[in-house]
Amino acid sequence: MSQPSTDAIVKTLKAKGLRVTPQRFAVYANLLSRNDHPTVEQLLVDLNQYCPVSSQATIYSSLQALRAAGLIREVLLEAGVSRYDAIVESHHHFHCQQCGSIEDIDWDDLPVVAFDRLRSGLQAVSYETTVRGYCDRCIQAE
């Protein structure tokens, strides 16, 4: 994933009506630079590695503001674990059951769900698929 310029990140945050705080900027820039769908704890370690100024509460509030603005999304692939993704366009996920790695799957790579086959009374709003299995690295390691 290519990293947008500092100016582009600032412009995006302002366009969404967000104040550009150093912590909010750092969280968003970090998410834009990675594709591993980090947890809050992983973000905290990563951000404080270079400039120890962020607390877990600050990261949570930054994530919530970014999510509310539609710049990131929360991904729930495991019970009780929130992960975050800067790719907000529709896509699916592959989750390795052994190493825990997560990879994006293009939306068009999986068949569309037939909403017309849902029972009467159900109204679908959105969906995404999580494919669970073993990644090539784990398969080769065995």
Rank of each mutant, 00 (worst) to 15 (best):
L122V: 06
T129F: 13
S33R: 14
L31E: 05
Q49K: 14
S101E: 09
Q123Y: 02
L118N: 03
L44C: 01
D46F: 06
D7E: 11
N30K: 14
T129Q: 12
T12R: 15
L77G: 05
G17T: 09
C138D: 08
C138W: 14
D85C: 13
V88E: 03
A15W: 04
Y127M: 04
I72L: 07
Q97L: 11
L32M: 10
G80Y: 13
R34P: 01
V45H: 05
D108C: 03
E128K: 15
A69Y: 03
S82P: 01
E128A: 08
E89H: 07
F115D: 08
S2N: 13
E142T: 14
F115P: 00
L32S: 04
A57L: 08
V45Q: 04
G100F: 13
L76H: 14
L13W: 01
A65D: 02
A8N: 11
I105M: 09
I105Q: 06
G100S: 04
L43I: 06
Y84L: 09
A86M: 06
R119V: 10
Y134Q: 11
E89K: 10
R117N: 05
Y134R: 15
Q98F: 11
V27D: 01
S5N: 08
T12Y: 02
L63C: 07
H93Y: 15
F94Y: 13
L118T: 13
A68H: 12
T12M: 07
N48Y: 02
S62W: 00
H37E: 11
Y50M: 02
A69H: 04
L71P: 14
K16A: 15
R73A: 01
Q3S: 03
L122N: 11
F94W: 10
S54P: 00
R119W: 03
L71T: 04
F94Q: 05
N35Q: 07
V112M: 13
A65Q: 12
Q3R: 14
A141H: 14
E41Q: 05
L47Y: 14
L118C: 06
S101V: 13
R137P: 00
A57C: 00
E142C: 04
L66D: 01
V125K: 06
L13N: 02
S82F: 10
D109Q: 10
A68Q: 15
K16Q: 11
E89T: 14
R132F: 08
P4V: 11
I139Q: 13
A79E: 11
Y28H: 15
D36E: 08
A114Y: 12
S62F: 00
I59P: 04
R73G: 01
A57Q: 10
A8I: 11
Y50E: 01
L18E: 03
Q97V: 11
